[in-house]
Design a protein around this nucleic acid. Structure first.
Lengths: 168, 168
DNA sequence: TCCATTATGGATATGTGATATCCACATACA
DNA sequence: TGTATGTGGATATCACATATCCATAATGGA
């Protein structure tokens, strides 16, 4: 019972974008370099987040990605469901119905397990929707404003400022 | 984020055994017939439950399976962990560390996600350990004493009684 | 208009783990 | 001794996550 790697990857993408100047899109290739994941694969992850309007994409020259909303508006549940669909713990194959094939218990038997697990689903939904990405950052770093300087490579915005001859 | 089918299968096995006379072992082949799962596969599922001392197995002629304890002593968490190991939602690949490769945030960054998800794990552990198989049966059927008669085939105990010339 | 850069989305390969089956063997009882 | 059973290892199959590539469209700048 594990979340997919995709959830971890998605969160990392969002955390990286959270350090990015909103006016300067970051290319998915740059993110792929930082996370050491292949560009083509990363784009697939990103598309799921774009569809759910968690991040915004602009194609073309000087295009790229920005967060569609601030980190305190992005619920952790959103990210999980963007990657995996609705939370549903129970792999309902109808096996329990075979156990109660005949007799008065047949119809009720179908609900035994579903009921318990949908309650567990609800528990997780409440838990993950009560927190945002901002909460994660704040709890770990004491701030949601992580300077771009800490990245291992110069940020795209730095590069662009330099191209334009601006100083930081 | 789903439990494996094995959990569903394990619960069905336990529910079937709960209707069985404790003194008359039920063969895994009979369970496999009822659930329409191959005998050899079902034995593998069963072995996991035997190792965790949830069910008891007796080899040899007239051997078979019985519950190692009553259904009100079998926590649902036990079953899940017997099949899947300890509950752990987060597929920790260390990706977040690549995002925070350098700088003061590197060490703290490692904990961002782990902390949240271990709290989610704890939530599930508490939920599933607060319930037993008896609770499931009681909630759905109003009783934990489901008569063997409702099975689609005659139970092994009936067959054995007949062999011995006993009447029900 | 042309070029470079970027996202889009389909096709496809790879890998991993769940699912499933079979077989040789040990055990128990009649 | 024979039959019925569980044990445990080897292995096959399948689903799905993971990963890559390629053709295409979109965008901005020269």
């Amino acid at each position: 019972m594990q979340l997919t790697k995709g959830v971890e990857q998605a969160i990392c993408i969002i955390v990286i974008l959270s350090t990015q100047d909103k006016n300067v899109p970051l290319s998915s290739n740059e993110i792929s370099r930082r996370l050491e994941v292949s560009p083509s694969y990363l784009k697939k992850i990103i598309r799921k987040l774009v569809v759910k309007q968690i991040i915004t994409s602009v194609p073309g020259n000087n295009g790229g990605l920005t967060l569609a909303k601030s980190v305190d508006k992005i619920k952790n549940l959103e990210i999980i469901e963007a990657m995996e669909g609705p939370i549903s713990m129970f792999p309902d194959t109808g096996l329990i119905e075979k156990a109660f094939k005949d007799g008065e218990y047949a119809e009720k038997g179908m609900d035994v397990l579903r009921r318990m697990f949908s309650r567990a689903d609800q528990l997780l939904i409440e838990f993950f929707s009560s927190q945002t990405v901002a909460d994660l950052l704040k709890e770990s770093f004491g701030t949601t404003d992580i300077p771009t300087l800490n990245w291992n490579t110069a940020s795209l915005s730095d590069v662009l400022r330099e191209k334009k001859g601006e100083k930081k």
